[in-house]
């Protein structure tokens, strides 16, 4: 009796304070219905095939929970997060030659390009890094986005040289090994950029001559 009463009160309270229709926010019925609608309502266009809406384990979890909100509204259970990050770390293919650094000038070009993998891009066109869309990098480029953190002076901020290079390579290859639900794409693991291209981007971040560090 008491328990029922408290239950009723809780519902009333949450209805009164929440957004218009929050009551159904955890409904398996609506989750299933949404999935069915998405499967039905998207179609092939150019290189973007309909099966792109199929989610992997990480995408499913990160559609439900967050773990990278700057305002601290993260709600992903820690065990889920650790488990996902461990699996993602395994998908990173580290360079066989042990060298993480390529050509920073090629990296800057790549960082500037926002091309790649949309239905209006062509299959034979290599994807860009899309870096400036979200990050500040070179001190000379003022048209940078702010969804991701500023990477200005990257080389001076992340410990020893060897550690920093490895960290940069890993983050570009698969950032989800470090932050399960980061907004950033998994450039290596998803086959967006090649090993050589990722090395060029590491060079952009690490080379003392790179405008990122000047």
């Amino acid at each position: 009796m008491n328990a029922k009463l408290i239950f009723g009160m809780t519902i009333t309270l949450s209805l009164a304070t929440a957004m218009p229709v929050q009551a159904d926010s955890k409904s398996p019925y609506l989750d299933a219905k949404t999935a069915a609608i998405i499967k039905r309502d998207f179609r092939d266009k150019g290189i973007a095939k309909a099966d792109r809406v199929n989610q992997d384990e990480l995408q499913v979890a990160c559609s439900k929970y967050r773990d990278d909100m700057p305002d601290g509204t993260n709600d992903m259970p820690n065990r889920t997060k650790v488990n996902l990050e461990e699996k993602q770390l395994k998908s990173i293919k580290w360079p066989a030659d042990g060298n993480f650094v390529g050509d920073w000038k090629a990296g800057e070009k790549l960082a500037q390009s926002g091309k790649g993998m949309t239905w209006s891009d062509k299959a034979d066109e290599p994807a860009g890094g899309n870096c400036y869309n979200c990050h500040q990098l070179s001190s000379k480029e003022i048209a940078y986005g702010t969804i991701g953190p500023s990477l200005l002076n990257y080389a001076k901020k992340h410990g020893s040289r060897e550690e920093s290079e490895r960290r940069a390579y890993g983050h570009i290859y698969n950032v989800k090994a470090y932050i399960a639900c980061s907004n950033m794409p998994r450039f290596g693991s998803m086959g967006i950029l090649s090993e050589a291209q990722i090395k060029d981007l590491v060079a952009l971040l690490m080379d003392p001559e790179s405008p990122v560090n000047k």
């Binding site: 926010s25 609506l30 609608i37 792109r52 809406v53 989610q55 439900k64």
Partner: peptide
């Protein structure tokens, strides 16, 4: 509205 909210948060595709 509820389905719209779920689509809004639906991560997929090569860029997640």
């Amino acid at each position: 509205y509820e389905i719209g909210k779920r689509i809004f948060n639906y991560r997929a595709g090569p860029y997640d």
